[in-house]
Design a protein around this nucleic acid. Structure first.
Length: 316
DNA sequence: AAATTTGTCAACCGCTCCGGG
DNA sequence: CCCCGGAGCGGTTGACAAATT
């Protein structure tokens, strides 16, 4: 009869909500509150399934909803949180009062589409547009000058960032300082990401792995921690673009860019040789700046002829 | 100016988790 | 222990709007 399991009513309306339906739902919820969504349609006189009512209320009708464009601060928050927790929209939304996971997800998806529109050709040409004026959040710019400074925080991050724990507090940890994916998000397998955190000191270059292949990296990296991460944060002021570094360990390294990880010292040496202190530089145009030093992009020996300077939403 | 492509966004679908029986 | 139903989550769709050709 009903072609949908959650909708047992005779006539179940779907699609966009009419103002009249909204009014009914608002009236019902504001007077009765909600306990069981599946009984809301009946009691409110709506030809909808409970799930649809819940979604409508949560995403659009509840009084504390915040509408309109994301503020620059909100956008920055989303970007930095997403860099850490990946597509955990509800988690990100919990840091933005009045915003919903759906809204943030939509925003990110259209934003990301811009970012990865041009397919990655496998050369060092970045398909990632360069954005300006994005402030790196304070937790990402802290400088660490010694392992002794860094290690307690890393341990804390490890302790608190159980990938199986939805309530992991990883985002509020001072770790990571900054992370990058080994490859362009456009071509990367979702669960095969490698992240590198540079703590502003070449001795402390470390490899971070997503939970896709964490075991591989755990053995190599004493400070390894796990984050769920799908896409890079955008390039920021002072970031540079270069080809993949040498010294990659692993057979598919050449072909795929850098699917395997680097020995700590090899990567450190290589980074040092680039004469860009404060940076580490990574595969295929994805690299970053640590510690707030702005090196002009023009100093980059760039092989990059990228002209796709997509504009970041104007409010930034 | 019409047709086509691209973008936006609310809503849907299927899945997992969890708690009660 | 399993089964069931509801809540919540994230990927995806599709209607409509906007942009482009």
């Amino acid at each position: 009869m009903g072609h949908h399991s959650c909708c047992n009513q005779q006539k179940v309306k779907r699609g966009l909500w009419s103002p009249e339906e909204d009014e009914k739902l608002i009236k019902y919820i504001t007077t009765h509150g909600y306990g069981c969504w599946s009984e809301v349609p009946d009691k409110a006189g709506l030809q909808r399934c409970g799930k649809s009512c819940r979604l409508r209320w949560i995403n659009y009708l509840r009084p504390d909803i915040r509408r309109g464009r994301f503020s620059p601060e909100e956008e920055k928050l989303i970007i930095s949180l997403h860099a850490v927790v990946g597509n955990r929209w509800a988690h990100i939304a919990s840091h933005l009062p009045g915003r919903t996971d759906n809204e943030i997800k939509n925003y990110w998806n259209s934003w990301i589409k811009k970012k990865i529109r041009k397919p990655n050709t496998g050369t060092s040409t970045s398909s990632i547009p360069q954005y300006s004026n994005i402030q790196i959040p304070p937790t990402l710019t802290q400088n660490f000058n010694s392992l002794a400074q860094f290690e307690p925080l890393a341990n804390q991050a490890m302790t608190n960032s159980n990938p199986n724990d939805n309530n992991s507090i990883f985002p509020s940890s001072p770790i990571p300082l900054f992370m990058f994916e080994a490859e362009c998000g456009a071509t990367m397998a979702k669960d095969d990401h490698e992240l590198v955190a540079d703590v502003g000191n070449l001795n402390l270059v470390d490899i971070w792995s997503t939970n896709g292949n964490q075991n591989d990296h755990q053995a190599l990296s004493p400070l390894c921690s796990f984050v769920d991460h799908n896409y890079l944060p955008p390039l920021m002021d002072g970031m540079v673009t270069m080809g993949p570094p040498p010294g990659c360990i692993g057979e598919d390294c050449e072909a795929s860019g850098s699917h395997e990880c680097f020995e700590k010292n090899e990567l450190s040496e290589w980074v040092e040789a680039q004469q860009y202190p404060g940076f580490f530089i990574w595969d295929q145009g994805l690299q970053g700046q640590i510690g707030g030093e702005d090196l002009p992009v023009s100093t980059t020996p760039k092989t990059n002829t990228d002209t796709s300077v997509d504009t970041f939403p104007s409010s930034l």
